[in-house]
Amino acid sequence: MRSKQFACAAIPGSESYHRLARTSLFRWWIPPLAVLVFAVLLFFLWVGVVVVMTIFAILGGSGLAPDSVRVGEIAGLAFGLSAIALLIPVTLFVARVVQWRRAGSLFSVAGRMRWRWLARCVFGAAVPLTLGAGLFMFLGDTAAGAGAVGDNGGTEVLAAAAFVIVLLVPFQSAAEEMTMRGLVMQLVGSLGSPSGDSAFSRVLRSPWPAVLAGGTLFAALYAATHPGALWNTVSLVVFGLGMAWLTWRTGGLEAAIGLHVVNSLVQLSLCALTGRLSEIGTGAVVGGGLLTDTDTPVTLVLTVAQVGLYLLLVTGFARRRGVSRRSAAAQP
């Protein structure tokens, strides 16, 4: 029974990350209700963003804003990143209110964000990023549009863009991971009955359905809106599956957030430097910072190299640091 004090179910004992939503208060109707509530909240969130952006565009178009084109680009960047970042309270609301569990179980098996582990993952992400930059310089001539540089607007515009990117990208990246590798994986992982002995129940309890769902959903959505971008889509599948598996392997979202943040910071900064701020909101940068105008095999090569090296580094770090991949045993 749910108490009057807004109490929530304890984190299941000795469970992997993808099973943390299967609490003592779990009922069969909770996953579909969670999806419905998330969809409704997402709809009203995007309506609000569109209204605010429309009002700003009207004010900018009336001449009230100096250099309105550049201001509009930076505002569009800020609104776009903020809209995604607002998925953080949405996912936490769904976990805490709809699923009636500790919201911190979205972050890790410890029921919270493991900040030291996150910092180590961010530091480790610099290694595959450097490798990717070197490979891009070596193979970049084969990538369409790789060298295209436009008017970046000068120092003031770059400074404003850098401020917005550094301020909002960590929240945007965390929000995407909390949704795709957090809420989605745990929704799927909650379906298998802990007492079921059938092959179907055993498959649902295993991490693979959750990993597949959390790793491919965004790529499927991207493919639906960009049907011709084959290499980007496959690259997003590689990135998503790698981060989903790493989330299960390390018992939390920290590793996925670390690579996502570093990739997005670098790629969005490159967009600002090359005068492509206006393209970000239209899908020029997706997932882990892939540029849509480099939809070639080079994109896949870079993604495989970065994700593969990152997996090796982080799993090695986790093994040496003893990072827990399962929740604490239940108290008697």
Results as ranks from 00 to 15, higher is better:
1 M>A: 07
1 M>F: 04
16 S>A: 11
16 S>P: 00
19 R>E: 09
20 L>G: 05
22 R>K: 13
22 R>Y: 12
24 S>R: 14
29 W>H: 15
30 I>V: 14
32 P>V: 07
33 L>V: 09
33 L>Q: 03
33 L>W: 03
33 L>A: 11
34 A>W: 07
34 A>I: 09
35 V>L: 14
38 F>W: 13
42 L>Q: 14
48 G>K: 13
49 V>E: 13
51 V>G: 04
53 M>H: 10
57 A>K: 10
63 G>E: 04
66 P>N: 04
66 P>T: 06
67 D>W: 00
68 S>Q: 11
70 R>K: 10
75 A>C: 07
77 L>G: 03
79 F>P: 01
83 A>K: 03
88 I>N: 08
89 P>Q: 05
93 F>S: 01
95 A>P: 07
96 R>I: 05
98 V>N: 08
100 W>K: 13
100 W>T: 14
101 R>Q: 13
109 V>L: 08
116 R>N: 11
120 R>C: 00
121 C>G: 12
121 C>D: 11
126 A>Q: 12
126 A>D: 00
127 V>Y: 10
131 L>D: 12
131 L>C: 14
134 G>F: 05
137 M>H: 11
138 F>P: 00
139 L>P: 08
141 D>F: 07
143 A>I: 09
145 G>T: 11
148 A>T: 13
151 D>S: 08
152 N>I: 05
160 A>G: 13
161 A>S: 11
162 A>E: 01
163 F>W: 12
165 I>Q: 05
166 V>I: 15
169 V>I: 15
170 P>I: 02
171 F>K: 00
172 Q>M: 12
174 A>Y: 01
175 A>R: 08
180 M>D: 02
180 M>K: 00
183 L>E: 07
183 L>S: 07
187 L>W: 10
188 V>R: 03
189 G>I: 09
190 S>R: 09
190 S>D: 09
191 L>E: 02
191 L>I: 12
192 G>H: 04
192 G>K: 05
192 G>S: 05
196 G>H: 05
196 G>V: 08
206 S>G: 15
207 P>N: 06
210 A>Q: 09
216 T>D: 06
217 L>T: 13
217 L>H: 07
221 L>N: 12
222 Y>P: 02
223 A>H: 10
225 T>R: 03
227 P>K: 04
233 T>Y: 04
234 V>N: 07
235 S>F: 00
236 L>D: 02
243 M>L: 14
243 M>G: 03
245 W>D: 01
248 W>E: 15
248 W>A: 10
248 W>K: 02
249 R>L: 01
250 T>Q: 09
250 T>D: 08
254 E>R: 10
255 A>G: 13
255 A>N: 05
258 G>D: 07
259 L>E: 00
259 L>Q: 06
261 V>C: 09
262 V>M: 11
263 N>I: 00
266 V>A: 13
275 G>T: 04
276 R>W: 01
276 R>V: 01
277 L>D: 03
279 E>T: 12
284 A>K: 05
288 G>T: 02
292 T>Q: 08
298 V>F: 02
298 V>I: 14
298 V>D: 01
301 V>R: 06
303 T>G: 10
306 Q>T: 14
309 L>I: 14
309 L>W: 08
309 L>Q: 08
310 Y>S: 01
312 L>R: 04
318 A>M: 04
323 V>Q: 10
323 V>A: 08
325 R>D: 15
327 S>N: 07
328 A>D: 15
328 A>L: 15
330 A>D: 15
332 P>G: 11
